[in-house]
């Protein structure tokens, strides 16, 4: 496995993420809710970071409580929160494993994606 310890890997991954259709904004924040890297302005990034960290905290606790009820899933962990609104989808990827407490927020506009299945079926 390649040791990924260079900042260029991050740049590359980010670039790839942004190359997808409909991706509007990304925010990387640490466990304390500080936006580290973002393409938004300060105010907006802070807003996202603050709200998302609260949401993930709550969601994680909820998941933990649910998982605690059954023995087999005791070490279950929150992976992703997808918040779908009329105009956007906000993907919140927290990373609680191994103490790497960073969190990635992606704002995507799903209406910019490929034609709907039904439309495609009609077109061909």
């Amino acid at each position: 496995m390649v040791v990924m310890d260079d900042i260029s890997f991050v740049e590359e991954a980010m670039k790839r993420l942004h190359s997808h259709k409909g991706v509007r904004a990304t925010v990387v924040m640490n466990a304390d809710g500080i936006p580290i890297r973002t393409n938004l302005d300060r105010e907006e990034a802070n807003q996202f970071a603050a709200l998302a960290s609260q949401l993930t905290g709550r969601a994680r606790r909820a998941m933990k409580n649910l998982a605690a009820a059954s023995v087999s899933e005791a070490d279950d962990e929150l992976q992703v929160i997808r918040v779908r609104s009329k105009k956007h989808e906000v993907v919140i990827m927290p990373d609680f494993d191994k103490g790497r407490d960073f969190c990635l927020i992606v704002v995507q506009d799903p209406s910019a994606h490929q034609p709907l299945f039904s439309e495609r079926a009609a077109g061909t």
Binding site: D6, A13, M93, C103, L104, H113
Partner: peptide, 29 residues
């Protein structure tokens, strides 16, 4: 923080995960 090894690994892993979700969204509604 950006120089931190943890950060780089975490973000690359997260980007891969997020990419999957984004691709899903783009593939089918």
């Amino acid at each position: 923080v950006e120089k931190d090894e943890h950060y780089i690994r975490a973000v690359v892993a997260l980007c891969a995960g997020a990419e999957e979700v984004v691709k899903e969204n783009n593939a089918i509604d």
